[in-house]
């Protein structure tokens, strides 16, 4: 296993130390592994808490800051954080207006956040509303299954809902907005290589030199199908087509088009893919209102990419454009 780490058991703690050093404007609670804004909770502002397994950096810790999250809990690599962390995060961001938990739809994440919310309620703590993100069209949605995974829409949602919370909107409204964003976003991913979980020490799956996986998740879960390598033009089709056939994206104010790198894919390739995605959207009559291209939600050292489209109206675009000051996303301030 080739990684710039020390003991695999320490990777999360070590990375949090590095993150704290790189971003003195944040406050890292190393014991609870929670990244907080440096300035503490603002009275009357809804607190935004997210979190999940580590290995997706900059998500979520890198999205803590003005205009986005108030706190993020870092679990072990690819393992949901535990309720204690979420309770500490929730208490630490409570400004009296309640707290929104933004949870990616994975069994572990959902159950741990659920237990955290129960614990906070048992202590008569902050009012907590939970929103679950489930946007991965690679997964068949059904009442009888765990449902769709939460992937790229999470990043866009944290930004947009973060802006709304910053405006001082009440918890119910902020939560409604979050659900609206989740409803309007769809994603699909692919991998050229597997990732290697540090504690496992070898690639999660073997992928021959001439094959790729379509419909992967962001935890090294293998995809829905394995196909021969193809040019970026065809990869774009394999990602965009299932998204477009899952939701109507035409009309409105166009989409936020998010082309995301999974950790080992250089920006050069993401731009190539973005050009192909844009060409397909153009052909389908879907306008791109905003683009985001880069490694914002990674899967350790996986080579590959995900595409997320978020159908926007004026309000979502305005909130997207609002100032944001975090290590991972920063503009307007």
């Amino acid at each position: 296993m080739k990684k710039l780490i020390n003991d695999p058991a320490d990777v999360v703690a070590d990375a949090l130390r590095g993150m704290a050093l790189a971003h003195p404007e944040l406050r890292v609670d190393h014991e609870n592994r929670v990244v907080f804004r440096g300035e503490g909770p603002r009275q009357g502002k809804v607190g935004l808490v997210s979190g999940g397994g580590s290995g997706h950096e900059p998500m979520h810790g890198g999205f803590v800051g003005r205009g986005m999250l108030d706190a993020a809990c870092a679990g072990e690599v690819f393992t949901s954080p535990v309720p204690d962390q979420m309770v500490a995060a929730t208490q630490g961001v409570d400004g009296g207006a309640g707290v929104l938990h933004i949870v990616k739809n994975y069994t572990g994440d959902v159950m741990n956040f659920e237990m955290a919310a129960e614990l906070v309620a048992a202590e008569s703590g902050a009012e907590v509303v939970t929103v679950v993100v489930d946007d991965d069209v690679a997964v068949t949605d059904s009442l009888y299954t765990a449902g769709r995974r939460g992937v790229g829409t999470t990043v866009l949602l944290e930004k947009i809902v973060g802006a709304a919370a910053e405006e001082g909107r009440p918890l119910a409204e902020v939560a409604d907005l979050a659900r609206r964003v989740d409803d309007a976003g769809r994603s699909m991913g692919m991998a050229l290589t597997s990732c290697t979980v540090p504690a496992a020490g070898k690639p999660t799956f073997d992928l021959p030199e001439d094959q790729m996986e379509i419909g992967i998740g962001i935890h090294g879960e293998p995809g829905r199908r394995r196909v021969p390598l193809a040019p970026a033009r065809e990869v774009a089709e394999m990602l965009v087509e299932p998204i477009l056939s899952d939701l109507a994206f035409t009309g409105g104010e166009g989409v936020i088009c998010f082309v995301n790198g999974l950790g080992a894919t250089p920006l050069l390739e993401l731009y190539v893919l973005h050009a192909e995605v844009a060409a397909l959207l153009d052909k389908a009559g879907v306008g791109i209102a905003r683009s985001l291209v880069g490694p914002y939600m990674t899967s350790l050292d996986m080579a590959g990419a995900t595409v997320t489209l978020l159908r926007c109206d004026d309000e979502l675009l305005r909130l997207w454009d609002a100032p944001v000051v975090t290590p991972g996303l920063r503009w307007g301030a």
Binding site: T79, S80, V82, M111
Partner: peptide
């Protein structure tokens, strides 16, 4: 201490 699905 566990997290994930198996913790809860």
């Amino acid at each position: 201490k566990v997290g994930g699905a198996s913790g809860p």
